[in-house]
Design a protein around this nucleic acid. Structure first.
Length: 583
RNA sequence: GCCAGCGUAGCUCAGCGGUAGAGCAGCUGUUUCGUAAACAGCUGGCCGUCGGUUCGAUUCCGACCGCUGGCUCCA
């Protein structure tokens, strides 16, 4: 507990220092551009930023110049001086600063506070460090455009991002971590490991899965299907296009229009490509009159959907225009709702553990501004989600207004090996679509009741999840997921025949294996397999081909020495079957 | 969509107002090798697309397309 408090204190100090650094940066910018209009400049994770309206666009070469000015200000060790002034007084001080004036007018109190260091004054609640000399190691990182107050309709200001830490050593650590993140970037590894590609000529945001990526994806999908069958889900398939009327009934046409692709004309009927899988599942449900005895019904589908995403937001595998959700819809009675949600949460935990995500946070997202359905319905659904989280003793935060238009949801954010957050599993309660499509069951009293629907995805989408996995594992997939699990490396051409025997014997047992038959030296073949992060390298030379052995090298560099092929099959087979995270 | 930067061989990247280069990969030979790169030769480019300036544009300017970092929005 004491340690916890200390850490909070430390981060408060750090935040103060970062915020102070942003003021110093603002002063530096004002020295270079006296006509600067200032936006806001808060501390953020790892650093700070400040938004400016400037007479010309910034270029990267400006950053060292601004940094140099900042160092001068820091060297002068100017004190930060807090002053409280009446609003009218503040409006005079910031007469030439329209953005500051806007902020002053919105503040509720009669007095506002300002902070001054040297000749620079800023409207600010504080707190700050005592003087500029207390600012630690920092570095200006990048320039970006940012809308004033985050609103698309307001002017775009220029933002400078910086990072700041208490010591130079911590700053260096951070910069190294950044380099490591670049090394793990799934877009880079996707190319190097030949997992997938995206092409201008086919369209941005549309993924081509190459054999290697497809092998990983298939391993995940097979596992996913087995686990769902085990938990009472039934697999279904639904078409990629459907009449637009369906989406008008559902509310997507009204609430989700900007993400839908334009209708296409088929026999004078308008069809659209599906942005979600739920409607198909509803239709399947409705093909029969359902009794309460049939419920819950759990329909699962690896369903590919297409959503329009604005061009600037596309990013590798994590933000695309066509993606496959690991989707399922649970139809249940109100009484079953909480147990069903709990079941999904358990499945989520199991999946996260299997893939090696130890840390994740859950968020309860509540009713957004644009919503469908009654307030009463929203309350029931939101309470159900909250109750389950409490019942299972899961700590969570509330994300107000972040729900989907048809219902509230639990979102899960994963922390990968570098501690970065990824949007992962999502569980949504929906009372709205059942109403719109009149989805019912016959209750014990033989009256028709409306079902509750739970939409859920435990991985999110195959694309985003694989992007996350690639970075989490740095491309070195656990053996059960590795695109190529073993490479057989003949030392000389005369060992090729034996190598092929090893290959076919392993293939028969469903190992993903291949022979490196190139006319290369063994060292080159090992290097190639290392770079491709193949878990097992099976070196075969004179000794092995005579004894029926393989010499096993792990991608960790460890040499396990010679063993019989059946010993290898048992050993590697176990690692694969148990989905061990380490080879 | 908005702001800024970028786009040269399959990949990573030099270059430049006078018509294009390296390493790796690929191909062809030679080499047959014991745990992270054998050697030699060869091939490979509407310098993102379209337009403008110029005697001449891969180079300068503009538009468009795409990518990167952000903003806004999301699985």
């Amino acid at each position: 507990m004491a340690i916890q408090e200390k850490r909070v204190l430390a981060t408060e100090e750090l935040e103060k220092m970062r915020h102070s650094a942003s003021h110093v940066m603002a002063e530096a910018v004002s020295l270079i551009f006296p006509e600067t209009r200032f936006g806001i400049g808060p501390a953020i994770e790892d650093g700070f930023y400040y938004d400016f309206e400037l007479p010309r666009p910034l270029v990267n070469e400006d950053l060292p110049v601004i940094e140099a000015r900042m160092r001068e200000i820091i060297a002068r060790n100017e004190p930060f001086i807090r002053e409280e002034v009446a609003k009218e007084e503040a409006e005079k001080i910031f007469l030439a600063q329209p953005y500051k004036l806007e902020l002053i007018r919105e503040l509720p109190d009669a007095k506002v506070s300002t902070y001054r260091q040297g000749a620079f004054v800023d409207l600010c609640r504080g707190p700050h460090v005592k003087s500029t000399g207390q600012i630690g190691a920092f570095k200006l990182m990048s320039i970006a455009g940012a809308y004033w107050r985050g609103e698309e309709t307001r002017p775009m200001l220029q933002r400078i991002y910086g990072v700041a830490f208490a010591t130079e050593e911590q700053l260096q650590d951070y910069l190294h971590k950044l380099e490591e993140a670049q090394r793990r970037d799934h877009r880079r590894l996707g190319k190097e490991l030949e997992l997938y590609s995206i092409h201008d000529e086919a369209g941005p945001g549309l993924v081509m899965w190459h054999p290697n990526g497809a092998a990983v994806r298939r391993a995940i999908e097979d596992f996913w299907k087995d686990e769902h069958a085990l938990r009472g889900y039934e697999l279904v398939y639904t078409p990629h296009i459907a009449k637009v009327d369906l989406w008008k009934t559902s509310g997507h046409w009204e609430f989700y229009r900007e993400n839908l692709y334009s209708p296409m004309d088929i026999d004078e009927q308008e069809y659209i490509v599906k942005p979600m899988n739920c409607l198909g599942h509803i239709i399947i449900y409705k093909t029969q009159k359902r009794s309460y005895r049939d419920l819950p019904l759990r329909y699962a589908e690896l369903g590919t959907v297409y959503r329009y995403e604005r061009s600037g937001v596309l990013h590798g595998l994590t933000r695309v225009r066509g993606f496959t959700q690991d989707d399922a819809h649970i139809f249940c009675t109100p009484e079953q709702l909480e147990d069903e949600i709990a079941g999904v949460v358990e499945l989520v935990r199991f999946m996260m553990k299997t893939f090696g995500f130890e840390h994740y946070d859950m968020y309860l997202s509540t009713r957004p501004e644009k919503y469908a359905g009654s307030l009463e319905g929203w309350k029931v659904a939101t309470d159900a989600l909250a109750n389950v989280l409490q019942r299972l003793g899961i700590e969570y935060k509330v994300d107000p207004g972040e729900g989907v238009f048809y219902g509230p949801k639990i979102d899960t954010k994963l922390h990968d090996a570098l501690g970065r957050e990824w949007q992962g599993p999502t569980i949504q309660v929906d009372f709205n679509l059942p109403q719109r499509f009149n989805v019912t069951y016959v209750a014990a009293d033989s009256k028709e009741q409306q079902v509750f629907m739970v939409h859920r995805a435990v991985l999110g989408s195959m694309e985003r999840f694989m992007g996350c996995l690639i970075e989490h594992y740095a491309g070195a997939f656990p053996a059960w997921l590795a695109p190529v699990q073993a490479v057989v490396i003949p030392i000389a051409d005369r060992h090729l025949e034996y190598a092929r025997r090893v290959e076919s014997e392993l293939k028969r047992e469903r190992f993903r294996v291949r022979v490196d038959s190139r006319s290369e030296r063994m060292n080159a073949k090992i290097r190639e397999a290392q770079l491709q992060k193949v878990p097992y390298m099976l070196v075969v030379g004179d000794k092995e081909s005579q004894s029926g052995n393989v010499s096993v090298r792990l991608r960790t560099g460890k040499d396990l020495g010679s063993m019989s092929l059946s010993d290898f099959k048992a050993k590697a087979g176990d690692t694969i079957a148990t989905r061990a995270l380490e080879v």
